[in-house]
Amino acid sequence: MRNKIKEKLLVYRVQVKRDAQAFAEIYDYYIEKIHRFIFFKVASEQEAEDLSSEVFLKAWNYLSSDKGVKSMGALLYTIARNSVIDHWRGKKIELDLEQAFLKDELLEPAAISELEQDADMTRVYKALAKLKDEYREVIVMRYLDQMDVGEISNILQKNKNNIRVLLHRSLTALRQTLEEQENK
């Protein structure tokens, strides 16, 4: 959330005032971001939806049990990350996002054809799929979810300089992957 104070106020409203609508505001702000975060890790729209719903239910249970919350964003992304790990542990298979995309397993046919109408977009997507998880996470947060460095550093619990360096490396890696694809 761009405004840390606003976020703290919402947490206060949930835990002290027992105001469920405050949680609705948290949900509205984070739901698409959490969905996207999980989507790029689970290679399935359906599973991204299921896990995203679970994340918010777990976050609600955590908040309503009055445990301390330093950062709502950090809490949600931590729960999301752990949910994905549990999900893959349960399935006992390794994620290969690129393979899933190439086998058209990631998306419904309508979504694939939407993408394939733009050759550039398809190349970018494939290159993104090939990146290591840490790089892909920050690129998604910064350029798809449009979060600023401060917000990302809050969520990933790293200082802003580290995030700037990580962003630079991630974009460089993405451009290199794109060049390799073009040269093939």
């Binding site: 949680f23 698409e32 939806e49 970018v124 979810d145």
Partner: peptide, 28 residues
């Protein structure tokens, strides 16, 4: 620019509005 555009596509993890509304109803 391509990445910014990708966010509006399903391939970019764009969530279905119907699902967002349904899930919100249940959680709320």
């Amino acid at each position: 620019k391509q990445l910014n555009t990708l966010k509006h596509k399903r391939a970019g993890g764009l969530a279905r509005q119907a699902w967002i509304a349904d899930a919100k109803k249940i959680i709320m």
